[in-house]
Design a binder for these strands. Structure first.
Lengths: 343, 343
DNA sequence: GTGAAAGCGCTAACAT
DNA sequence: ATGTTAGCGCTTTCAC
């Protein structure tokens, strides 16, 4: 049979010989319904295939059970994992995420606010990879009072609940490993200055050097944009500077892999000539030549925790005042770094 | 100031000294409003910062302007691109996508149907990578009459509007290239049998061989699951069979890269000993050693076209009866395949 | 061109 | 434990 009209709460009530109120109570798991009535109504609901209309419920209760996921680029591995985790937790709590990527149209900064207010989204997960530029807008959202949690993106101008990975620790461990292998001239390809994750990893790098009594050489640091190509050109820049180094810490696996290509083209061998540590543990990291030593981030967990907090804040407002959750990274040892043979 | 109560259509009407109908008419761009009234109302809307409540609109008009995106895994590169494209087109038409990944909980097949009916989604984009298992369920959705478009996923049991890439052509071109380089013993790592894309690429492979008067050797074909690891083990299997081959067509870049690692470990050089062609043109493809020759798929366009059709079907039902759109692939030449030096 | 009335399907606040 | 009365904020008739 073709798409039947939807069954409404009225029909259920009529069939059960009760008022729609009683049905509504059963639907909302209220205690004040007699067991028999409840049982009977449940059976009728089942038999009629009744599904409550979420739109009507939303209007009447002012609860849309809808979350927004603002993100910059679904092609980003980090974000994807976050989304996966977020989606799962949301579903488990019977919330659903609406998509709001900011990328597709330039200058649509205000557009997603419109989306959010119009659709009466109850909370926002801000999972942007990009920094800068949106700060004022985000701040406005924070001030508006709508629950908002950020996945690894902090604001300088405003307190914000952030779930992130301990990037300082990650940067420290990556560098530390290289130092333990006897390296003292350690180059770094960092992420963009606008990212807190990039500056944090830099901090980790710096403090590892310092702890080992090593000095840092600005000539050994180049900035990339996280992606392959930028790692490639960053390494070319580094090589052109002709400052000796025997190790590289790239703040993303993609940049590490890009850099490795540049080194190959310059006849530099990894790890014999240059040891490399990346960051992210991309699926491909284990399959490049040589398999990449890297820092794994629990990205899925970031999404899960963020959503958990978001829902908590929605259901008990005020419960999470600007928490900051830092998840730990994991060091993944592979073959791209080895003892310093050069000095 | 703290989060003000929302402005409603009533306040706009009152402020303008008209009835809410008139405001509603302006909102819905109806022609039957005098220019002055319209202008005046528009200004008041602007001044008051009025945003129509999409939930209320949805209830009254029975149009939610909401689409569902059913997908298996946001970590998949292919899907991500599709999502990006889909999202853009949806936004341009003022629709929004709800997320419905099927992965997070096992056996939640019926769960997303519930989600869809309850939320009164107007159309579904089915962008699953995985085949099999869900067919009966999907068929039920198709029969329910809700507009449904699939991104590269066909159903054997049921006609379905599908936007896909021409996998036969892609498989043909990949193989053809290898043949033109003088290869005749061409191994293939294919995707899972349950994927039409895998069997289509196989068809292309077969017909290229046939066109060249070459025979196919079943011992040269191994199945993987699209991912790196499976390419790695598939190549080990291939090598263990000790059947000579000088070229490899891997149905995904990931499997190609996995296979390349296995070859490295077996001291086989690419492309000198074995030429390789992949499929997908992952961002990493240009940066592995050697840079991978591959088939690029217009995935973003798949998402865009699918959403376009979906919206069209929603707005003019019956307009797209089970179309099948096939987008063309692009051959990307890099360094992983070269002339056959071996025979 | 504009307005009044009647819902959309449900929940909330009182009743009883 | 259950029913009644009001809406939620908007669109849809159908008047004028």
């Amino acid at each position: 049979m073709a798409s039947k009209k939807h069954v409404t709460i009225w029909q259920v009530a009529e069939e059960a010989g009760v008022s729609i109120q009683t049905v509504s109570r059963v639907l909302n798991q209220r205690p004040d319904v007699s067991p028999e009535t409840r049982q009977n109504i449940l059976e009728i609901i089942e038999r009629l295939g009744y599904q409550p209309n979420a739109v009507a419920r939303g209007l009447a209760s002012r609860r849309s059970r809808t979350l927004a996921l603002i993100t910059a680029d679904f092609g980003d591995y980090f974000l994807n994992q976050v989304v996966n985790g977020a989606e799962c937790v949301a579903r488990a709590h019977d919330y659903i995420y609406m998509l709001g990527s900011t990328d597709c149209r330039p200058g649509n900064e205000p557009e997603y606010t419109r989306l959010l207010t119009e659709r009466h989204v109850e909370g926002i997960l801000f999972a942007r990879a990009h920094g800068g530029a949106y700060e004022s807008h985000l701040a406005k959202l924070v001030r508006s009072g709508i629950p908002l949690v950020s996945a690894s993106f902090s604001l300088n101008t405003m307190p914000l609940t952030v779930i992130d990975v301990d990037n300082v620790e990650g940067g420290f461990n990556a560098t530390q490993c290289l130092i333990e292998h006897g390296h003292s001239r350690i180059a770094m390809i960092k992420g963009p200055e606008t990212f807190k994750s990039a500056t944090d990893r830099l901090k980790g790098y710096l403090s590892a050097l310092q702890a080992a009594g090593l000095s840092m050489d600005p000539a050994l640091i180049v900035e990339g944009d996280w992606y392959y190509e930028s790692g490639y050109t960053a390494m070319q820049t580094l090589l052109a500077r002709r400052q000796p180094f025997t190790a590289l810490f790239a703040q993303s696996d993609a940049m590490a892999i890009g850099a490795m290509r540049a080194m190959r083209e310059a006849s530099l061998r990894v790890p014999q000539d240059v040891s490399v540590v990346g960051y992210d543990d991309l699926p491909v990291a284990a399959f490049v030549d040589p398999p990449l030593t890297t820092i794994r981030q629990p990205m899925r967990e970031v999404g899960e925790t963020a959503t958990q907090l978001l829902i908590q804040e929605i259901e008990e407002p005020g419960s999470i005042q600007t928490k900051e959750v830092l998840l730990r990274t994991e060091f993944i040892h592979r073959n791209s770094c080895t003892d310093n043979m050069n000095y």
